[in-house]
Design a protein around this nucleic acid. Structure first.
Length: 507
RNA sequence: GGCCCGUUGGUCAAGGGGUUAAGACGCAUCCCUUUCACGGAUGAAUCACGAGUUCGAUUCUCGUACGGGCUACCA
């Protein structure tokens, strides 16, 4: 299908938590690479040194590892196209910027931040609330287009800080074919002269993404829709530097929206659902933002849910394994419109995955959740039986605590209100007799337990319903859980009897 | 303000000239279950609006409205 080996990249900026949309971008990259037997690269876009956040890079890789979307090449795996951190590639970019200047596609600009600020203030009107450094303004600024050549040379020689800006051509239509939305075009007259190389010698995203995609032989570039407005800059740079025929195919992914528009970090706290893949603690403020992992999501469910947020295979199938996604994913079937994230649906995906996964596949994750809640569950065989019994009533892995804690320790509280009002001497006598019966029972399984229980109830002129709920509360503490005799069977004779005795003493 | 992208039930969405406009989540009712769930059944609920093209537009074109994104020496 493609004559070159497919190479895609995810290029995060390590400035904080990894958001839903980011993981979905990773996913689509990953699926596309796997489907085409290509390479998936992670390149760290850390050209803004002022936004450096310690730990963010490591955090991103931890998230990818958890989600099962690990790259083939990155700062971790290495590769033949390194370094994979743009800050370490700094010397590479300058020559491209210089070449653009030499070819007349870019120029030096000496305006200080204060001067730029003044420009924006001076030219700001109601009609134009955010003036651009564009073809009109650049004639009024201090740059190599307006200054005499000697002065430019002198300024550079004296070490005056400067940036290199692209010189946007006039009245040119720049267009390209986006894999998701078809042909997209822009008029260069309304685009400003973006900075390509900053005063500190670092490239901006615009230069870096083009140079690195070229150097790393990227064939397909997928990124969020928020990049669409700057894509003409990138197309022009490709044209000037490397030729349009070498440019990767672009796909601008639709945005994932929150309940009130763009999904922001704050939405998580506000609406009670996570936005990050994993817990993220801001090193400056120490503020913790909860992640899907810690909230109790399975990675299988998480990527399944993300894959369907903007894509579907057209058949109505919603539950997909990673391998199925690799086989069936298609960029052409990705929606062009943004999708509002629905936490209820996300939980449904998780519930489906919990239901269909074998207890052994759930065991380690349930153990972690139990450990965090101080629930002693050392016996794997017992744990697997418990998981099997309760998993269909769990949306999240953390629900296992509530649903299964009573298997491992006696209830801390009892729903006495559900029992007391209807309690009587007859019921007390029944349970005393049940204790005797349990003590003498030859076998201990759910079927026989239930049989005996009902028989004795009948002999005591009690309807099963009158004593079933009290029995449940004795064992569980509340009105929930699997079939009560399954619980008793798993709890064992000693524990069952002891819980009945304890409860009777409370009445 | 300008530019760009988008718009099928509350949400995710199939369908791309003629359909009773799929399906899923959620919601409601019922069945199953002497708990809570699972499961099953049923139901309410959708083509933003206006023109045009056409014998016929949810589907194609153009406007309008609405939503979103971008508009930094951030990515």
């Amino acid at each position: 299908m493609y004559n070159k080996k497919v190479r895609v990249r995810f290029a995060p900026s390590p400035t904080g938590g990894l958001h839903l949309g980011g993981v979905r971008t990773v996913l689509y990259n990953y699926l596309f690479a796997r489907q085409h037997k290509g390479d998936f690269i992670v390149r760290i876009e850390d050209t803004d040194q002022s936004r450096y956040v310690p730990g963010a890079e490591e955090y991103i890789f931890n998230c990818l590892k958890w989600a099962g979307l690990e790259p083939d090449e990155s700062v971790i795996q290495g590769g033949n196209y390194g370094p994979y951190r743009q800050s370490e590639r700094k010397p590479l970019y300058r020559k491209y910027a210089d070449q653009l200047v030499a070819d007349g596609h870019a120029y030096y600009a000496f305006d200080t931040p204060a001067e730029l600020e003044k420009m924006r203030a001076d030219f700001k009107t109601e009609q134009n609330p955010s003036p651009q450094y564009d073809r009109h303004i650049r004639t009024k600024m201090r740059n190599s287009l307006t200054l005499p050549q000697e002065e430019v040379k002198a300024l550079i020689a004296s070490g005056t800080p400067y940036v290199i800006r692209i010189k946007m051509p006039e009245e040119q239509i720049v267009s390209f074919t986006d894999m998701i939305r078809g042909e997209v075009s822009f008029n260069t007259s309304v685009i400003d002269d973006k900075v390509l190389l900053k005063a500190d010698g670092m490239p901006t995203y615009h230069l870096a993404v083009v140079a690195d995609d070229y150097l790393m032989e990227i064939t397909h570039a997928f990124r969020g829709e928020e990049w669409l407005p700057s894509s003409p800059v990138h197309v022009l740079l490709w044209q000037y530097l490397f030729g349009l025929d070498k440019m990767p195919q672009w796909a601008h992914l639709p945005l994932i929206l929150g309940p009130n528009g763009k999904l922001s970090k704050r939405d998580g706290a506000k609406y009670g659902f996570p936005v990050f893949a994993m817990n993220w603690t801001d090193p400056k403020t120490n503020e913790l933002t909860e992640g899907f992992k810690e909230k109790g999501f399975l990675p299988e469910a998480f990527i399944n849910m993300l894959a369907l947020l903007g894509w579907n295979d057209g058949t109505g199938q919603e539950i997909f394994t990673k391998d199925e996604l690799i086989e069936k994913f298609s960029m052409k079937r990705v929606h062009s419109g943004g999708a509002k994230f629905d936490y209820e649906k996300a939980k449904w995906f998780n519930r489906e995955w919990i239901k269909q996964l074998e207890p052994a596949k759930l065991r380690e994750q349930v153990k972690q959740v139990f450990a965090a809640a101080n629930i002693p569950a050392a016996d794997d065989i017992l744990l697997d039986q418990v998981i099997l019994l309760v998993k269909e009533r769990c949306d999240l892995l953390t629900d296992f605590v509530e649903q299964a804690a009573f298997f491992f320790r006696a209830p801390e509280a009892y729903d006495l209100d559900a029992v007391k009002p209807k309690w009587n001497e007859n019921k007390s006598l029944f349970f005393v007799e049940m204790i005797r019966n349990f003590e003498l029972a030859a076998v201990w399984n759910a079927t026989d337990l239930e049989h005996n229980f009902k028989e004795i109830a009948a002999a005591n002129h009690l309807k099963p319903g009158e004593v079933l709920l009290p029995f449940r509360i004795m064992l569980v503490g509340g009105k929930f859980g699997p079939h009560v005799f399954d619980i008793a069977a798993l709890l064992g004779r000693g524990e069952t009897i002891s819980r009945i005795k304890h409860f009777l003493s409370l009445l």
